[in-house]
Design a binder for these strands. Structure first.
Lengths: 186, 186
DNA sequence: CATCTTTTTTGACAATTATCAAAAAAATTC
DNA sequence: GAATTTTTTTGATAATTGTCAAAAAAGATG
């Protein structure tokens, strides 16, 4: 189970904890192009992507803006909504047939209390999220559209084949016309 | 001590923990315009601003870019460097005479181990940091320069008097000329 | 495989913000 | 408080990216 082994790389997972984790999570198969979390709904779950690809997006002036992609061995949730338990402004959808490990907010809170060592896990995951977001901000603030795209190709080459131009463009904070032109001149 | 009472609003601080916190932190007075963390140095400390104002900035193409301001009752550190223990790309400076509560990385790690309930604190602080950063990203990605400035006035009015136009402009991701023109037409 | 739908590309033009240069204003220092 | 330094403002111009519209290409469907 890639979920447990992934966690093991962050904290030591006792067999007791492993049993608990297996008990409170659910393996969830989703087919391609399914909406997993709708706008304005509560985000009760955090998902670990065992197989497949998810995408988070929201609407800005009627257009879909990709906020993240989550591939194999990555966590995915509408973080703001999950942390605050407020209605989500984000949609989560599957871009491929996927297998998710589903962990609910209440089960997680429970886990934190019963296995305090998992607090560390929560913190470390948050730190990693933060650093990724910081990189993204620097990227958008100081790189030209072309530099951002080059950077994307470098850091997430596999997503090039698995997502559409429009999805990537909005993730990079540019229009798809601009991205198309960048591609043309490369 | 505003530090302890601020923490108390997040987790319950036992008297034992309070004693420990007092023992491992140091009250650090710094005068105005002092560099607290230099570029490429290790960031060994996280600071809690008891009084005064700090600023984090880095250089991009020879120009200072403000990444954050930390006022009274806020935490401040070069988060990426502090978390990863890598050399900092950020400078931390005091913009006013300030009083800081200094907590070292090693003392914090130690605290996490000896008082597991503080892991929760670390996680919650990280979550708050994340959400602030997310707002900032949305702001830079989708608001015009004018909207961003208006938003800044709304959310951090006190900083208007305490910082310079150039510092605010770079924080908002615009040039100071542009910010000056925005001010003129408001 | 012909049709329908979605995605990508291309073109013309507009808007926002940056850049460079210099003047004006404000703040600091001796 | 005069001189120096720093910060802010103003002007002219350029560059990047966005917008709107439509064609072309690719993909999905019955």
């Amino acid at each position: 189970m890639s979920f447990i082994s992934h966690l093991s790389s962050v904290i030591s997972v006792s067999s007791k904890l492993e049993t608990e984790l297996t008990a409170i999570t659910k393996r969830l198969p989703v087919s391609k192009n399914k909406t997993i979390l709708e706008i304005d709904h509560r985000c009760n779950d955090i998902f670990f992507v065992e197989k497949g690809l998810l995408r988070g997006y929201y609407f800005h002036e009627g257009k879909e803006i990709t906020s993240w992609f989550a591939q194999e061995n990555e966590f995915a949730t509408s973080l703001y909504a999950f942390v605050s338990m407020k209605p989500s402004f984000e949609v989560i959808q599957s871009l491929e047939d996927s297998t998710l490990i589903q962990l609910s907010h209440s089960a997680l809170e429970n886990l934190y209390t019963r296995f305090p060592e998992t607090e560390r896990l929560g913190r470390i995951i948050m730190e990693a999220y933060y650093i990724k977001l910081e990189e993204r901000l620097l990227n958008i603030q100081f790189k030209t559209a072309k530099e951002r795209y080059k950077n994307f190709i470098q850091s997430k080459p596999s997503l090039l084949q698995r997502t559409s131009l429009g999805q990537i463009a909005s993730y990079l904070g540019i229009t798809q016309e601009t991205l198309s032109r960048i591609r043309a001149e490369m």
